[in-house]
Structures are given as structure tokens and as C-alpha cells.
């Protein structure tokens, strides 16, 4: 086979020198750069707005740097420890939840990827059915209540433990994995579970990274579960707070304007978006590392 230096290079980096190739590269850089720009400009506005006064947000339609730089919205948000506490709660729930969910999803996907397993099609059909049909909010709430999970952090994790959509994608990824190593391990006396933990999971790092990200973000962004299942306000997660400040609220609609209430201000909205997005953004580069290391699969010798 080929020499080791190429094998350890990321898949995307290859060398070409033809003219057409260079033209393509230039166009590609411009195109993707432009794409990044149109996603990032409005976000800069959100960031800038979070540091601007309410008056300025009303007075200037669009800006990337506030005329008067203030941190009052952030001071307001961090004035009491509620936000920090909910941030901490969210981080812990997200971390634990992601591990549980990835483990459950991957361990169910593995047997489903084995075409020779009797009963597999039936289970798959059952799973696909839940992609499009669901009992609804109220019956799910009743199940959670009857399991005694109300006011427990597990209520934020277990009802969403396996996303059928992800399950099927993971299953498909497993089907593409080379069988040679699994065979070898079996011959060495490993049972299927051993093969899964010792061979398959280590081989699936890019996929694990991907779905960890998906699950983590799903838990992170979930505001409905804490709202329905958690009555104890001290256990609320960050998104409940975010949602409260950014939802298209009836409070601002005509007539419903309730003078007894202070409205979520624009600047505050923006600041909350920034706070709720930053931590999960920091998570991504760690995973990105694994995407680049996808070459592991290639180490299997035929």
C-alpha cells in the first residue's frame, strides 16, 4: 500500500497544479468566504447590539460597533446568581445527558446494523414509525410523572434519550464499517459486546464526535422539557431563561401590552443569545479535531 506520510494527512489536503484546478480553488475560497461573511455579519450585529444602549438599537437600524459601549445588559444578567447557577446546571445536564444518549443510541444501532439478526427489520420499522407519529405532550408528561421523574434532571435526559433519526444514521454508518477487524476480534474470542466496545467504538470517533455534538446541542437548546417537567425553579436550565427573553411574546403585541410588566429589551435579548450560544460554541473545536482524524478507518488493511 501507500507510504505512511500520505496516510496520515487529512483527506482534503491534496496537491494539484493545473490551471483549472487553481481557478476552482480561487472561486471556492471566494464563495465560501462570502458564505461565512453573510452568516457572520448579522451575528456581529447581535453581538454589537448586546453592548449597545436600548436607545441606540432603536435609533440605528444596523451597526457592527456600538457608538456608546455599555455592559449594562450583562451586568443586569449577572446581577444575581440565577443565570450562573442555571448555566452550571445546563452544563452538567448536557454532559451527563450526552454520554447517556450516545451510549444508548450507539448500543442500539450496532445490533440493528447486523443484517443477519432476526427481528431486526421489525425493530427498525417500529423505530421509523416513531419518526412520524408521537403521542403528544400530555401523554408523555403523564409517563414522566408516573415514572416519578418530575423535578428530576433525568426528566431532561431520558425522554429524549434516543433520537430515531440519529439512530438510523448511526446504524447506516455502522453498516459501512469494515468487517475485517470485527471478524478478527471475534476469532480472538471476543463476544459481540466486546467487539462493540473494543473495536467498533474506537473506530467510530468521527461519528461519535458528530452525534455527541448533535445530542449536546439538542439538550442545550431544549426549553420545553425543563418547563414541563421541572417545577422547582432553582433547577431550571439556561434555555428557560433565554426563551423567556427572546420568544415572540404576546406581551409586546398590541393591546396585550401589560403595563405591570417590564419588557424584554432588545439589548437584553441579544446579550442572552450571546451568553447561551458561546459555551456550546467553545465545545465545537474539540470535536472538529476528530473530524479531521477520520483517517482512522483507512488504517484497516485489506
Amino acid at each position: 500500500m501507500s507510504d505512511n506520510t500520505t496516510a496520515t494527512q487529512p483527506a482534503g489536503v491534496r496537491h494539484y497544479s493545473s490551471l483549472g484546478s487553481r481557478v476552482f480553488d480561487t472561486l471556492n475560497i471566494i464563495l465560501l468566504g462570502g458564505l461565512a461573511l453573510i452568516t457572520v455579519l448579522p451575528l456581529f450585529y447581535v453581538l454589537a447590539g448586546s453592548f449597545a444602549t436600548e436607545g441606540e438599537i432603536s435609533a440605528r437600524p444596523f451597526f457592527l460597533w456600538p457608538e456608546k459601549f455599555v455592559t449594562s445588559t450583562y451586568e443586569y444578567i449577572f446581577a444575581n446568581d440565577t443565570l450562573l447557577r442555571s448555566l452550571l446546571t445546563t452544563i452538567v445536564v448536557t454532559a451527563v445527558g450526552t454520554v447517556v444518549q450516545v451510549l444508548l443510541t450507539f448500543s442500539m444501532a450496532y445490533p440493528l446494523a447486523k443484517r443477519y439478526l432476526p427481528g431486526r427489520t421489525l425493530v427498525l420499522n417500529l423505530v421509523i414509525f416513531t419518526l412520524v407519529f408521537g403521542g403528544g405532550i400530555v401523554p408523555t408528561y403523564l409517563v414522566v410523572r408516573d415514572l416519578g421523574l418530575l423535578d428530576s434532571y433525568w426528566a431532561l435526559i431520558l425522554p429524549l434519550a434516543i433520537n430515531p433519526f440519529y439512530l438510523i444514521i448511526v446504524k447506516s454508518f455502522f453498516q459501512e464499517l469494515p468487517q475485517a477487524l470485527e471478524e478478527a476480534a471475534r476469532i480472538d474470542g471476543c463476544n459481540e459486546m466486546g467487539v462493540f466496545f473494543k473495536i467498533v467504538l474506537p473506530l467510530s470517533k468521527p461519528i461519535i464526535a458528530t452525534f455527541s455534538l448533535f445530542y449536546a446541542v439538542a439538550i442545550w437548546n431544549d426549553y420545553m422539557s425543563p418547563l414541563l417537567y421541572i417545577n422547582d425553579n432553582s433547577k431550571w436550565t439556561l434555555q428557560v431563561l433565554v426563551r423567556q427573553l427572546t420568544s415572540p411574546d404576546a406581551a409586546n403585541a398590541i393591546g396585550a401590552l401589560d403595563s405591570a410588566v417590564f419588557f424584554p429589551q432588545q439589548g437584553l435579548k441579544f446579550a442572552v443569545v450571546v451568553i447561551a450560544t458561546l459555551p456550546i460554541l467553545c465545545f465545537y473545536p474539540f470535536l472538529q479535531k476528530h473530524f479531521a482524524k477520520g483517517v482512522l478507518i483507512g488504517s484497516v488493511k485489506e
Binding site: 483527506a11 482534503g12 459501512e176 476528530h290 473530524f291 479531521a292 477520520g294 483517517v295
Partner: peptide, 14 residues
């Protein structure tokens, strides 16, 4: 993300 993960799995030897 999902497609990049799939692309990351391509064997460079290919």
C-alpha cells in the same frame, strides 16, 4: 456536519 463526518471517513489511500 454530518456530511463532513462521512467525508472524514474516506480512506486517503483511495
Amino acid at each position: 456536519i454530518i456530511y463532513l463526518a462521512a467525508l472524514a471517513g474516506v480512506d486517503p489511500n483511495l
